[in-house]
Amino acid sequence: MAKAFAPIVITANDLVEGDSVFLGPEGWTRDIRMARVARTAEEATALDASGAQGETQNLVVGPYRVEVSLETGAPVPVLRREQIRASGVPTIPVGPAAIEAAREAA
């Protein structure tokens, strides 16, 4: 039996800002919850094509598929790396906020 197709979304980096963006119903969004989800191989191929367009239109860099789980309704990446990427920030406070956090902890 063929393996069930795992749902995917398309992600890339924004050309100017460099941050993670996801292919949504109306262009690219920074919120993965707004991403279009492909539930079949055919849908995924169609999304690939829209993703590639984003690159030719000079909006994004390096689109690729991210496997997601739909358990909670909205897409959540399966891999840790993609979860961190989708969050848009490191998993820890950084920069001036980190200093503040360290001060409070002390």
Binding site: V94, A98, A102, A105
Partner: peptide, 14 residues
């Protein structure tokens, strides 16, 4: 390397 900080990071103020 302040306890709890990110090793090697420094803010503009620092």
């Amino acid at each position: 390397k302040p306890i709890g900080g990110a090793p090697g990071d420094a803010t503009a103020e620092q």
